[in-house]
Write a protein that binds this DNA or RNA. Structure first.
Length: 495
RNA sequence: GAUUCGGUAGCUCAGCUGGUAGAGCAGCACCCUUUUAAGGUGAUGGUCGACGGUUCGAAUCCGUCCCGAGUCACCA
């Protein structure tokens, strides 16, 4: 047992003293009649004859000789209590004097306003509901200015519960996160999509280009991967006869971490039989407007220093037109040598030995992406980087029916007219397999079971993936993914 | 991975060119029955991220490592 610091010792001594006074510091329940916000909202309807009962965590305390004030905070807000010795009794007042910020307190009393006009509860009785034995960060505030704010990012991420207790705007962000995901479900449900769950532990990973986490199942004695995407399972369900399915999907990718990448993150993917990527564009546009409206109540957002507006029709431009517009270069007829030459002329650093598709992708990221501020569907991608998408119906064999949605220079959604020709699909995955053998750790492995499923017949289908963390960052104006994940991945601290 | 900045009391921070650790808030004792960054008086509180080195002496200088943030690179 570590030596307790003086502060911790004092709290434990208080706890002991409370027990010795015959008070259980951890009772079982408390009947509430109101939450804090209801007292403020309904102030005029309360009289001194009406007893209300509230409970919450003590968030501020001002002790005086024979009467004191404190604030308690519940999930609706905070409210002040007035606690006078002559009303609650000498013994109870002694107990109250031992309480700290961080303790949970129940109160019964009547509603009144202090002489400075603050709506408060005049306590008839108080009840300790849980004693805190470790001091909370103390944040004070006057006229909207915070003093001693709990601001250390490392501590905030590692001890998110403290962040939530003392930083109300953090709590708000996570409430909005929850609303966004629930609005998304509502929209998909209303459009008759069926929510499904597919395996997180997969014998073969696929559906995206990424390096996986590996694990091991003891009974089966086999290697399993944490999914990098649920795409191939959702397509099996389309093959199985579900016509509209979706999954809110935790994905795991064993790659670098930074402001926009956490090893586990949340996406939604949905698959829509008999539809193509054009219909899926209209649908995603509607979806985003619905979610914005339902969860945040606006179509205008500020993100990464840009103002974006969802109320205008989203732009739709082909990848090659965009490179022409921003780079004055024609990618469709370019050879790999010409693409390399273009990169050099624009000072774009690229590795040796990239193929056509990878080079185009590089050029697009450098030359075009920073310009895509208002929502823009970028359409017609090179086939080489889209092994699960259908060749374009216009007959151009180099491109596929695919779009990505860009907002504020970042990608938010990815969609294909899904490839459903089993022989073409096998060829494309075998191409990927060659890239793997050549050392591309992110190329897709061949999933024989998936290919076999497709051989039984898959309807024409549109498939969409949306990165929810990014959407949440945008809609809550946070530039770091760590600020919209309750428990972002951190190295263990050695404290 | 490269690079910059940072890690000192529960929280927020100061402590520069080496002389043995400081403030505010919190906590503790006493006073205080409408306060609200409550107030007053007093006494406390530290493995200065870790380990080495230089030195009579290291929070401070040097080295290695750990943790975080920012930027860049990589990465859907």
């Amino acid at each position: 047992m570590e030596e307790l610091s003086q502060l911790l010792k004092v709290r434990r001594e208080k706890l002991q003293a409370i027990r010795e006074a015959g008070v259980n510091p951890y009772p079982y329940s408390f009947e509430r009649t109101h939450k804090a916000s209801q007292i403020f909202d309904g102030f005029d309807s309360f009289t001194e004859n009406e007893t209300v009962a509230l409970a919450g965590r003590i968030s501020a305390i001002r002790k005086m000789g024979k009467a004191s004030f404190c604030h308690i905070t519940d999930d609706s807000g905070k409210i002040q209590l007035y606690i006078a010795r002559d009303i609650i009794g000498v013994e109870n007042y002694q107990i109250f004097k031992k309480l700290d910020i961080g303790d949970f307190l129940g109160v019964k009393g009547y509603v009144f306003k202090t002489k400075t006009g603050e709506t408060s509860i005049h306590a008839d009785s108080i009840e300790l509901l849980s004693k805190n034995i470790r001091p909370l960060p103390i944040v004070k505030e006057k006229d909207g200015v915070l003093y001693d704010a709990f601001a250390d990012k490392e501590l905030r991420y590692r001890k998110r519960y403290l962040d939530l207790i003392v930083n109300p705007e953090v709590k708000k962000t996570f409430i909005t996160r929850s609303k966004i995901i629930s609005a998304l479900r509502k929209f998909l449900d209303q459009n008759e999509f069926l929510e499904v769950e597919t395996p997180i532990l997969q014998p073969i990973y696929g559906g995206a280009a990424a390096r996986p986490f590996e694990t091991h199942h003891n009974t089966l004695d086999m290697k399993l991967y944490l999914r990098i995407a649920d795409e191939l399972y959702l397509k099996r369900l389309i093959i199985g006869g579900f016509e509209k399915v979706y999954e809110v999907c935790k994905n795991f990718r064993n790659e670098g971490m930074d402001k926009t990448h956490n090893p586990e993150f949340t996406a939604v993917e949905f698959y829509w039989a008999y539809a193509d990527y054009n219909q899926a564009m209209d649908f995603v546009e509607e979806l985003i407007r619905f979610v914005a409206d339902e969860a945040v109540g606006t179509q205008k957002f500020h993100f990464r220093g840009f103002d974006v507006d969802f109320s205008q029709k989203f732009a739709r431009e082909s990848m090659s037109d965009l490179v022409k517009k921003h780079g004055n270069f024609e990618i469709l007829d370019a050879t790999e040598e010409e693409l390399y030459a273009f990169c050099k002329s624009k000072n774009i650093e690229v590795e040796k030995g990239l193929n056509y598709g990878q080079l185009v992708d590089e050029i697009f990221s450098e030359v075009v992406e920073p310009h895509l501020i208002q929502p823009t569907f970028v359409i017609e991608y090179p086939k080489a980087i889209s092994p699960l998408a259908k060749t374009h119906r216009n007959g151009d064999d180099r491109i596929v029916e695919r779009y990505e949605l860009f907002i504020a220079g970042k990608e938010f959604a990815n969609c294909f007219s899904e490839l459903n020709d089993p022989i073409d699909q096998r060829n494309r995955l075998e191409e990927q397999s060659k890239l793997r053998d050549a050392g591309d750790e992110e190329a897709h492995p061949v999933d024989e079971d998936f290919l076999e499923a497709m051989e039984y017949g898959m309807p024409p289908t549109a498939g969409v993936g949306i990165g929810l963390d990014r959407l949440i960052m945008l809609m809550t104006n946070n530039d770091s993914i760590k600020d919209i994940l309750l428990f972002p991945q951190m190295r263990p601290s050695n404290e």
